[in-house]
Simulated scan of single mutants.
Amino acid sequence: MTSRTYTCAIVGTGAIAGAHARAIAALPARARLVGAVDVEPDRVAAFGAEWGVSAHPTLADLLADRRPDLVHLCTPPGTHLSLALECLAAGVSPVVEKPPVLSLADLDRLRAAEAEAGVPVATIFQHRFGSGAVRLRRLLAEGALGRPLLASADTLWFRDDDYFAVPWRGKWELEGGGPTMGHGIHQFDLLLSVLGPWSEVSAVAARQARPTDTEDVSAALVRFDSGAVATVVNSLVSPRQTSRLRFDFEHATVELEHLYGYSDADWRLTPAPGAPDPTPAWGSDPVGVPSGHTAQLAAVLDALDEGRTPPVSTADTRMTLEFVAAVYASAFTGRVVVRGEITEGHPFHAGMAGGGAPWPPRRSGPSDSRVGRTT
């Protein structure tokens, strides 16, 4: 394997940009930050001074000044597609924060541009890359855990009304959705990376309390091609915050509880009575790698060094984003949605709200607890 140092730039210097900058700095022999972009001059100037890199007002200006290997897109979700297409046209790989785009139609357009440019796109789903998740997928593939039977993924977070004062938050056309799209996606993407292809979804969604156009709660019942069944709950109204996953296999229960990132200490394995004990295998390598942007960036650079498609590929991303669309489609129509159903021409292919949420647009006012299911 040939290793090199990759140059990186960051577009959008808000809060999440710091996680990307720290990940690059944590891999000094392999990655180097060379530039930053933001439409707010003072903010990008301060970010550039903090990290010792050039500051630019636009992506076009950055690309004219230098040609980085990777451009990390840390802007609001509604801007991701146009910026990623601009990167691909310049022959530069975009590394896109979640959610990567606002719809399956946008993702299909991005995948077509990726294929035409011959330049890979990676989506940030950093929970796949902690050593606990890597080990879990390996042991499942090796048969040490037996068949997956039942699972759950709960993202129970709390965001107050002031959180939605940011203009792009809580709007379908700018954020793409609520906690199903922008918050719980981390947990259930990890669930999907372990359990593989899902086959059907039945869901509800509700706007329970927050001044938002989107849902603030959703819940889904999911069936997988393997026969496993799972529940997925996403919330922004839960005062005791937690991110929780549980997998019940034939030979063991594997649990993870954390909030915004996990370490090996956050995992727990309970052997099934009378079954082969997978505990010794659970303690094997890899160990000691927390989930986060550094772990995923290292995996991206490994793939580039080896000439492989970097994770998380647009093909992997599509299965997760199709799941998001299926949750909304089921919640808003009252139907079970099967994988592969939402294609061009389907109301939920062009946007996660389909023909519109079953509650009126609203940015303020009293609570509205009607569930997002129509008959």
Rank of each mutant, 00 (worst) to 15 (best):
residue 119 V to S: 07
residue 169 R to G: 10
residue 104 L to M: 13
residue 142 E to Q: 14
residue 151 A to W: 02
residue 96 V to W: 01
residue 171 K to C: 04
residue 114 E to P: 04
residue 178 G to A: 13
residue 112 A to Y: 14
residue 143 G to A: 14
residue 161 D to P: 03
residue 146 G to F: 02
residue 110 L to M: 07
residue 102 L to A: 01
residue 152 S to L: 08
residue 118 G to T: 08
residue 149 L to R: 11
residue 175 E to Y: 05
residue 158 F to T: 09
residue 138 R to D: 05
residue 101 V to F: 08
residue 117 A to Q: 02
residue 134 V to R: 15
residue 153 A to S: 15
residue 134 V to D: 03
residue 162 D to G: 07
residue 105 A to Y: 12
residue 111 R to K: 08
residue 94 P to M: 06
residue 150 L to H: 10
residue 106 D to F: 11
residue 162 D to N: 14
residue 166 V to D: 12
residue 176 G to R: 09
residue 107 L to F: 14
residue 141 A to F: 12
residue 158 F to K: 04
residue 120 P to M: 14
residue 173 E to P: 00
residue 104 L to W: 15
residue 103 S to E: 15
residue 156 L to D: 05
residue 150 L to D: 13
residue 175 E to L: 05
residue 100 P to M: 03
residue 178 G to E: 10
residue 114 E to Y: 06
residue 145 L to Q: 08
residue 100 P to V: 04
residue 123 T to C: 03
residue 144 A to M: 05
residue 119 V to Y: 12
residue 97 E to W: 07
residue 151 A to K: 00
residue 152 S to G: 15
residue 168 W to V: 13
residue 174 L to H: 12
residue 143 G to T: 12
residue 118 G to F: 13
residue 93 S to R: 12
residue 96 V to Q: 04
residue 100 P to Q: 02
residue 154 D to W: 14
residue 138 R to A: 09
residue 135 R to W: 01
residue 106 D to Q: 09
residue 145 L to E: 11
residue 120 P to N: 06
residue 157 W to I: 15
residue 104 L to Y: 11
residue 102 L to G: 01
residue 156 L to V: 12
residue 144 A to D: 10
residue 132 G to W: 04
residue 144 A to S: 12
residue 116 E to M: 15
residue 144 A to Q: 08
residue 166 V to R: 09
residue 170 G to W: 11
residue 153 A to P: 05
residue 103 S to G: 02
residue 111 R to L: 08
residue 173 E to S: 02
residue 123 T to L: 01
residue 144 A to L: 10
residue 174 L to N: 06
residue 104 L to P: 08
residue 134 V to H: 03
residue 93 S to D: 00
residue 121 V to G: 03
residue 107 L to A: 02
residue 131 S to Y: 13
residue 172 W to V: 02
residue 135 R to F: 03
residue 127 H to R: 15
residue 105 A to K: 10
residue 136 L to A: 12
residue 132 G to D: 04
residue 115 A to K: 10
residue 122 A to P: 15
residue 148 P to A: 01
residue 178 G to I: 12
residue 131 S to M: 12
residue 109 R to A: 08
residue 133 A to I: 02
residue 113 A to E: 05
residue 177 G to K: 12
residue 139 L to H: 04
residue 144 A to F: 01
residue 131 S to E: 09
residue 175 E to D: 03
residue 125 F to D: 01
residue 174 L to D: 03
residue 123 T to R: 00
residue 127 H to M: 07
residue 144 A to K: 03
residue 163 Y to Q: 13
residue 126 Q to D: 15
residue 158 F to E: 14
